[in-house]
Each structure stands twice: as C-alpha cells, then as structure tokens.
Amino acid sequence: MSLLDVHGLTKAFGGVVAARDVTFSVAPGELVALIGPNGAGKTTTFNMVGGQLAPDKGEVRLAGEDVTHLPPREKFRRGVGRTFQIAQTFLSMTAAENVQMALMSRHGEARALRPPAGRRHREEALAALERVGMAGTADQPCAMLAYGDVKRVELAIALAGEPKLLLMDEPTAGMAPRERAALMTLAATIARERNIGVLFTEHDMGAVFGHADRILVLVRGEVITSGRPDEVRADPRVREAYLGETGAAVAMRATQKRA
C-alpha cells in the first residue's frame, strides 16, 4: 500500500491555475522528486500536501486516511516531517534546543509549565544531531551556524517527529555543490534505513537524478510525465520544457554515477 496518495489536487490563485489535477503517490522508503520550471506549481503542490495551503479540489491521503484539510500541526502528529526552501529553524535557540522543541511537542509537552525546558529530551536530541553530523555544534545558537549546517539541523528537527513521510522543498537550495551532494546522500540514506517516504522538489539535476526513485515533471501546473530517472531523462517533452541540453547532460552524469 502506498504511504501518500495525492489525487486530483487543483489550486488557482485569482484565475491563474497553479496546479491542475495533480495525482501521484509515494511508497514507504521511496524517494520521489517533483521537478519543473519556475512557476510550474511545485511549491504550490508541496504546500497543499504539507497543509500550508488548502486545495480547491482533490484529496491527500496519508496511509489511507484523508488528511486534505488538516493543518500542518495535525499532519505532524500523523507522521509528516517537513523542511523548507529557506530553512526554518528557531534562530534564538541552540541546535540541540531546536530538536528538543520538536521532541517536547511530539511528547505533548509544549505547554508544560515545569522547567527547565533546556534539559528535556537532551540525550535524544544529541543523538538526532549526531545522525546528521551536527553533534559538535549542538550547543551553538542556530543563528551562528553556517547555512549548510542550519539545513542539517532542520533535517534533524524534521526527523525528531519520527515521520513516515518527509517533505523537502528544495533541500539543497543555497548550498555549495559538495554540501548539496552530502545532504542529499544523508537524507536518502536515513530515509531508506528508516523506511521513510520522501517527496522533494529540486533544481539541482545532480540531486534529482542521483537520488530519486521516481520523478514527476510538472509544467504549467500539470504533471506532463512521471517515471524512473532514465525514462524521464529520455523524454523529449521534458528535454524541451525543462532540461535543455545542459540539464540533460548533468542528468546523464548523475544517473551514470549512480549506476
């Protein structure tokens, strides 16, 4: 059975259709990439799945349950973790406190009045940071970390909710090439070892063709094709609407490297 079922999602902004009849599914442990030109509706689709945006039509099912109109916080409780295009962390807190906050919330302690918050679930938080390679800077304020490290902390926060489904909106945006590859490899490894389904958008063709099990191509709000990386790469429509010669070359290298 699939983990995430998206059926017929449609959203218009004042007459402009941003997403039309978007349908796809994600299985546990599967990495699905959503690609397409700017303004194709990737972020819109993403926010509808995540609950930040209400669709005009269509439904989102998580492990069979209809979650279309649940807000993000309810989706979190049902096992949806999320990272954002611009990393969203609590800048006034340390890396560890960021993860602890997510753990407190997961354990239903977010409104507890008994301090100190700083010591709750600290061991678990340190372990989560260790997993993403951030153990050394656990006690540094997030505001002081390099952007690549903030992205790792954000991944640790998302994982602290023990998600079944991980949504990553442009996980490597704003990162250096080597950091990009490392972050994608890390996310993919964790997802596979924990059997987490991953849906991600990305402009970096290396990341997409190097890691995705399946790729959906969105153009002007509609899914024009979907399939395995080699199928999508070979599709002339994708090449014309999105990849171009240079993109196709990068995609080719990434798939070859993988094999």
């Binding site: 954002f84 609590f90 919330s105 997961r106 977010a110």
Partner: peptide
C-alpha cells in the same frame, strides 16, 4: 518563543 522565531517551523512540528 518558537512561534516568534518561525511560525512555519512551529506549525510544522505540531
């Protein structure tokens, strides 16, 4: 403080 620092993140962690 979490809601102050990032509403999006706070919402996303429940």
């Amino acid at each position: 403080r979490a809601t102050r620092d990032s509403e999006l993140r706070a919402d996303a962690i429940g």
